[in-house]
């Protein structure tokens, strides 16, 4: 089984090198960084560290970047693709946990959930996260404790069935919607989150959460 790790990155020169090194140290050789139109050294650092760089000519959003990276990986021969954040908030040791249900064929899509152990997550983010998970459940009929998690793993077979349109943060809910609509098997596994001042400054803001909410609504009612 060929496993590829995709890192959607927008201006992540501070952390991307560390994340790639840590992936290599843990035995992951196929690393794809999607530079989502960064204006800093994200691309050059990633190449220097030995990752493949897919560079978007302009900023598409985390969803657009993830989709480009996943599709590229499957085209060049991946069997399983894992996406993790490039700000260093995910522990690469958790990749094993996330891909295990795919390897033993008990799921098609797996999501790493931060909500089994949300210690360190600011209260406002916990509330926002729950709200968006609840809305995703009401609108798409699929329950996830952490619908906004970027730590996901998907098989080639499942990816081929999905039609993901979203390009922003609503991508995470859009993927769950496709899991539901295409009758794919879904599992959640607990993951650890490394909260640093840097990783907290990244990710969704309150206004970002509101925008995501509006985008999910649009996707549900206007297609």
């Amino acid at each position: 089984m060929k496993i590829f790790v995709v890192l959607p990155a927008y201006n992540e020169e501070k952390q991307i090198g560390n994340v790639i090194r840590s992936l290599k140290k843990n035995g992951y050789k196929n690393i794809v960084v999607v530079d989502d139109g960064s204006s800093d050294k994200t691309s050059s650092i990633s190449r220097k560290e030995g990752a493949i760089v897919v560079r978007n000519i302009m900023n598409m959003g985390v969803g657009g970047a993830s989709v480009a990276g996943i599709e590229y990986s499957f085209r060049i021969g991946a069997d399983i693709v894992v996406t993790i954040d490039s700000d260093g908030q995910h522990d690469v040791k958790d990749i094993k946990k996330v891909i295990t249900p795919l390897l033993n064929n008990s799921a098609d899509v797996v999501s790493g959930s931060r909500m089994f152990n949300p210690k360190g997550m600011p209260l406002i983010r916990r509330i926002g996260n729950f709200g968006l998970s609840f809305i995703t459940f009401i609108l798409f009929g699929i329950w996830s404790t952490d619908s906004q998690s970027g730590f996901r793993a998907v098989t080639k077979h499942a990816w081929k069935k999905m039609h993901i349109k979203a390009t922003g943060y609503e991508y995470n809910s859009d993927m769950l919607r496709e899991v539901r609509y295409q009758n794919l098997r879904f599992k959640e596994v607990p993951i650890r989150v490394i909260y640093t001042e840097y990783s907290l400054s990244k990710g969704q803001s309150v206004m970002g959460g509101v925008r995501t909410f509006i985008s999910i609504l649009k996707r549900r009612f206007l297609g």
Binding site: V54, M58, A68, R75
Partner: peptide, 17 residues
């Protein structure tokens, strides 16, 4: 537009490789 940007990025990477 999104499909176009995505395809362009992927194709360019494959060509470069």
């Amino acid at each position: 537009f999104n499909t176009l940007v995505k395809e362009l990025s992927i194709e360019r990477t494959i060509k470069r490789k």
